[in-house]
Nucleic acid binder design. Structure first.
Lengths: 310, 310
DNA sequence: TCAGCATATGCATTTTATGCATCACTGCAG
DNA sequence: CTGCAGTGATGCATAAAATGCATATGCTGA
């Protein structure tokens, strides 16, 4: 929309950290962009950017401004999506961030399902850790986040939650594959491959190790679950995965872990607090929550018992 | 701000109901305005206004758009006020609607108090009934509403509440002035002057009459409390007022009414739900709530008992 | 049918935004 | 210390956009 072009300009400069770089992205000259920013600052009465020798940085006022700007741009998208919805055809774009490499199986399935109903809705999916996920929400770059054991912040507004117990995964030939349920001693008896600390599963595992006062024999750490899964074929190690991230059982099997050893974690579907989502995003989020709760029976809601009854 | 000029144009047209009238207010020609609107509709892909023989009216899409526009404009004000606050000087404007003619005594006092601290903050005060008050909030024309027994709607977000029992007012020479506390039979024994039905006090009185199956001897109905108060000097009638609306006792006295006869009502200070108020408005609202609760002991909060303890 | 008032549109003019060339400044590598 | 690369700011000519005037067009109600 034309009228928020100036806002988009400022947003781009803030993201680029330099007027010239932003000007390149926006396909205008740096002088034009510079002058628009000077004009905006003139209007506002205070500088939006601090001028540094190697570019610009948001001032305190600019921080306030940029939040406003991003919310306005996102809200305009919402309005457009609602207007499009009036004429029957649901259109728009849904931007999703999901916490780990485990989600894509589920997410891709859900997106395909949604797009079968509404082919005019487009999607973008990014995988990142839970801290980044919340940043993406607050910067209005993502509409919906799906994360495991997120940091609780004021910005985070859960749309739904399901419990996910950690499961141990290993090659079919691994000795522990003969047991149905693994205890702490079983885990100690083998080498393990752990996800990086930014991962929610790692958080639960570190916590378990701290409580037990014992450390697992970690041989490899990786942020890529595909790599981990492939590695298990070559060496008799154990790693971990959530039920939702498990594919079909083939060379790699999964086994239950006793709950008192590693407590169950929570998988959240969430949006930015206070924001009204575009129609498509809101409905997709709703559909995902419904499906999750159908697959993994919704836990009893502790915050408000009355709601759980309905 | 320049970038929301187009939005302001649309807002003005929506309020004026005609492009020409809006153009006059905006001090531009109707052709220029017309073309900007056509351009916006082009961009949006759907008409914002329905063209009628006697002007224009918002289309369904326009209704969505205008809500967005007003929130944008109001939110920009908020940002400006927050930025102004950064540099120490609190500036800005607070727009208040109060439910009845009873409030102005209290409100004027509170505004004076606030302005003594922050002389750069300006105020506008409008008196209207509770239905209009909520409309003013939703159209972003008012930041804060102070109303007695409002309609409960989803848009209404209470910042504070105090109980206000109705009191009977009358001339000092009225026979009932000799009693300290009036019952239903006392009220039936005299003529009464009632506020109009849009008034929250009237709502409680009508309710009482319905329950008792008896009607008061209403001789005059008026929406103007000053008129009512003056009239009581000339004829021995009884009327009603809230404690907060009572001035100093002179020719007109007030007497308590038994609670089981007319139940206590609630006075609310409220804002539009989901909106973030400008700094000045938020702090003024807070100050008012605090003062009200100091004067009329805050009632026990029923919704969430935990909060009341703190 | 016609007067009255509404929105739309063609065209000349004014205002605004853009691009080019250039300046002034800073940090860094040699 | 010096030159280089990279930054934002500014003067001026040009391109684009908004505006105003005159006028067309469309509808209602008497």
């Amino acid at each position: 929309m034309r009228h928020l072009l100036p806002l988009h300009y400022i947003d781009t400069v803030a993201r680029s950290g330099s007027i010239r770089r932003a000007a390149d992205k926006l396909a205008i000259t740096s002088t034009a962009l510079n002058r628009r920013i000077l004009a905006m600052e003139e209007e506002l009465g205070v500088p939006i950017f601090e001028r540094l020798p190697r570019g610009v940085r948001l001032s305190t006022a600019g921080e306030l401004m940029i939040q406003h700007i991003r919310s306005q741009i996102a809200d305009m998208e919402r309005v457009k999506s609602q207007i499009a919805d009036l004429s029957g055809a649901r259109r728009g774009h849904v931007s999703i961030v999901c916490g780990q490499a485990l989600m894509p199986h589920f997410v891709s399935e859900q997106i395909a399902l949604y797009r079968r109903e509404h082919p005019a809705v487009t999607f973008s999916v990014r995988v990142c850790d839970r801290k980044e996920a919340i940043e993406q929400l607050t910067s209005f770059d993502a509409d919906i986040a799906m994360v495991f054991e997120p940091f609780r912040t004021a910005e985070f507004h859960p749309l739904g939650r399901v419990e996910q117990p950690l499961r141990a995964i290993m090659a079919a030939s691994h000795p522990l594959a003969e047991k149905k349920k693994l205890g702490w001693s079983d885990l100690l008896s083998t080498s393990v491959v752990l996800p990086t600390p930014s991962n929610g599963m790692r958080y639960l595992l570190d916590d378990a190790m701290l409580r037990k006062g014992d450390v697992l024999k970690q041989v490899i750490e990786s942020d890529n679950h595909d790599f981990i899964k492939n590695y298990l074929i070559h060496e008799h190690c154990v790693s971990f995965q959530l039920p939702i991230g498990l594919g079909a059982e083939g060379e790699i099997l999964s086994r239950e872990i006793e709950q008192r050893v590693v407590p169950h974690g929570n998988l959240y579907v969430a949006q930015l607090k206070g924001r009204i989502l575009p129609v498509a995003a809101a409905l997709f989020g709703h559909a995902v929550v419904k499906e999750l709760e159908a697959r993994y029976a919704a836990p009893v809601e502790l915050v408000n018992p009355v709601d759980a009854i309905q």
